[in-house]
Structures are given as structure tokens and as C-alpha cells.
Design a binder for these strands. Structure first.
Lengths: 207, 207
DNA sequence: ATTGAATCGATATAATAATATCGATATATT
DNA sequence: AATATATCGATATTATTATATCGATTCAAT
């Protein structure tokens, strides 16, 4: 996994701040500045934590005034790299892959899914047959950095090997399996069954 | 949110251990016992952490031998409550909701999705029109504990209010919005755009 | 039986993350 | 101009989580 000096937990809150502030900007445009107190109340975080987090991305808070909403949005976007477009491809366009492929919430974060591949024939437009040759073509026209794996777990490693050989930087893995990749490639596992089972066990343990 | 004395981070590793051990059991049935060393190597965790985690769910490790695979699986399943079936419903059966609704990986964890609702007409079988009256019916025949929210963010709060009024215990929220619920209801937010943006920013920061 | 190796559990230490405290500063009010 | 108040940033403290160390236990080999 790539090393990054950024606190992991902070990284998970950044998109939350950004989404929240964009909402504020849209729905309460009169509010040009915002205090850490208000943010912390609305997002149910500690007030100090909010200030500390924001100080990592932006040092423009003023006493008695708070933070400039638009400035904050810009800094958060810069931090996340929303302005440099990053290209992704989806492998496996079954139900879940198709949902990801068509999801339009990624653009806001500067991420564009430029191609989808599958081994099976299907009726989704613009989906190509998965083969190294076909995937290579899109690598030649776009700087693909993220591969999104939505194939069954039996096929996942094989697909990932192809992407690695083509120079992928990061993998977003929905297959419930631990992928083997070189150390410099970042893998984020997203196992929906895990998430739901955690919810379920929390209900169990609270009874 | 409900309090639960369980370490949060441990809870996130439990399904991982379980999945891993079930794989071992299936593919290497000759391996009746397993050491913390092997588990930690395969799952890329600390050896001590594995022992500590496992000691929370099972105290049957033997020096020189390791843990009995089947015993461990049983304990992990008990811990997660896989054996008591919990019922869930999905609200919003667009692309993502439909993927969740049809996903068959939940059964293994004792979770069964028994109904799906939407406001729009659609061609997915067994999906009902979302209204308090219709949802109430399923609450009368099943002990529904988990509501899975896959509607657009504008409709999410309204849907959740209905579920809360019917006595839901937990919400798995895919809508990119912070839901307002009574304190005793557990909400797990699952924002796919956040996840992808985090991956993207990790790539950014490592360059 | 004795010794050695593997592995466990428990305790101690270190690393990370969250929260509390407090002086400093910018505006509003008198 | 002086004072009060909101709010910030920095530093200190506490809580949580992960890792290292070490004695104890179990089996295998001599």
C-alpha cells in the first residue's frame, strides 16, 4: 500500500465536510462564513476535531467570524484533488458493476468512469468484452488510474493481474476476496456483505 | 447510536476472519487447526492483533497447535449473530437498490432481504409501491430490523421517518445525506462517492 | 524423562486519534 | 477607547488501538 502522511481518519471526514459545505453553499447562500461550532453540531463531530481537521487543509479561520465557506470548499476540493480528473474503468458489469458504472455522483469528485468491460454479452451500451487487448486500448487514450472490480470472486485475481500489468495505480475491489498485488498499488476493499453483517451484529450486541 | 462495548475496529475484522476461515475450511479441509501466525500472514495483520481479536470471541487456542478452524468459524458466526436470521427491506430499487436487493452474499451472515419498495413503477418482480401502509404489512409478518435506503437523497429523510415510525432498529444508508433519527437507532452510512474520492486522493497525495 | 520448538495468553509499551484547556484575536457594544 | 463575546489555533491531556515482550503450555524428538 502507498504511504501517505495524511491521517487516515481525517481522510474519511474530508468528503463529508465537502459535501456538507456544498450543501450549505447551495441552500443558504447568504451564509458566507461558518464556525467550527456549527459544523461540529450539524455533522455530530467534536468542535476541536473540526478545527484541527480544517487546519490541515486551510489556515484561514478567523476568530469571531469562522471560515469562509467558498474558500473552504476550494481547499477541500484541492485536497481531494477534485479538479484534476482521474479516469477509472469498471470490470464486471452485472447488477452492482452496472450501478457503479452509471452512478453520476463521482464527477463531483473529479472521477470519470470511461469504460466498462465484461466477459458476458449484455445489453448495456458501450460495454466491451474484457480482454487484455481491449483494455489496453483505453489505457492508450486515457491515463487510467483506478480499476473497479465487480466480477465474481473467482475471476477477480485474474482481472487484477491484467490491470496491474497495464499499470493501474489503485483498485477498488467489490469482490469478497483478498487480492494479491505489488506493494505500490493501493487496494481499497468494499465488501457489502461485511458492512451489512456489522450492522446486524451491532443490533445483536445491543440487545 | 446504540452503545456496544465491542471495539469498533475489531468488529470490522470479524467478517474478514470468518470469510477467510470458511475459505480455508472449504479449500484445505485437511487443515483442522490454524495458527495466528498463518492467519496474520495471509490477512496482512499483526500476529498479536490476530490473537487478541480471536481471544475476544473464542478462548480455545492451544500452544503449538493453534486454533481449531471449525470451532473458530462457529464462534465468529455466533459473535456476528449469523445464526439468528435478521430481516431487512430495501427502499428504492433503482440500479444500486436492485443490485443490493439481488445480492446473494448476505444469507451467509444470517441476513435476509424480504421486500423491496419503490415509488416508481418498474419491471423488477416482487417490488411493491412504497407507502406506509404497504411497508406496514411486511412488519406484521416479519420482524424487520434493518432498512436499506437506496432512494435519491431528496426522498431519504421522508422514507426513514416512515421506517422509524414502524419501529426499525437500524438503517443502512446509501443516500449521500445525513439522516435525522432518534438516538437509539443505528445508522451506517455507505457513501460510494466518498469511498472513490478517498482512493483518488490517496493516489494524488502519493505523487 | 528431558529437551527443544512452536505457539499461546497476558502484560507492558508505543502509536494514533480524539478531546479538553487556554491564551490570542477579531468584531460588536457600550 | 474600553470591554465583552465569539471563535480561532496551539498545546496538553486522555482515550483508543496496535505492537512488542515474555513467561507458560503443549507436543515432538531424543
Amino acid at each position: 500500500m502507498l504511504q501517505h502522511a495524511v491521517a487516515k481518519t481525517l481522510l474519511y471526514r474530508i468528503p463529508m465536510y465537502l459535501e456538507y459545505l456544498m450543501d450549505i453553499h447551495e441552500n443558504e447562500p447568504s451564509l458566507s462564513h461558518i464556525s467550527s461550532k456549527k459544523i461540529s453540531t450539524d455533522l455530530e463531530l467534536g468542535e476541536v476535531q473540526v478545527r484541527k481537521d480544517l487546519s490541515r487543509v486551510c489556515d484561514k479561520g478567523k476568530p469571531k467570524i469562522g471560515y469562509n465557506v467558498l474558500e473552504l470548499i476550494t481547499h477541500l476540493q484541492d485536497y481531494l484533488g477534485c479538479n484534476q480528473i482521474q479516469y477509472a474503468i469498471v470490470i464486471g458489469v452485472g447488477k452492482l458493476g452496472s450501478a457503479i458504472y452509471h452512478y453520476d455522483g463521482f464527477k463531483k469528485y473529479g472521477i470519470e468512469i470511461v469504460a466498462g468491460y465484461d466477459k458476458k454479452e449484455n445489453d448495456i451500451p458501450n460495454i466491451q468484452f474484457f480482454s487484455k487487448e481491449n483494455v489496453m486500448k483505453v489505457f492508450q487514450t486515457h491515463r487510467i488510474e483506478i480499476g473497479i472490480i465487480c466480477v465474481p470472486k473467482e475471476e477477480a485475481q485474474e482481472v487484477v493481474d491484467v490491470l496491474v500489468s497495464l499499470g493501474i495505480k489503485a483498485i477498488w475491489n467489490f469482490a469478497p476476496i483478498r487480492l494479491k498485488v505489488p506493494k505500490h498499488i493501493f487496494v481499497q476493499n468494499e465488501n457489502l456483505a461485511y458492512s451489512l453483517s456489522i450492522i446486524s451484529s451491532i443490533i445483536n450486541h445491543s440487545q
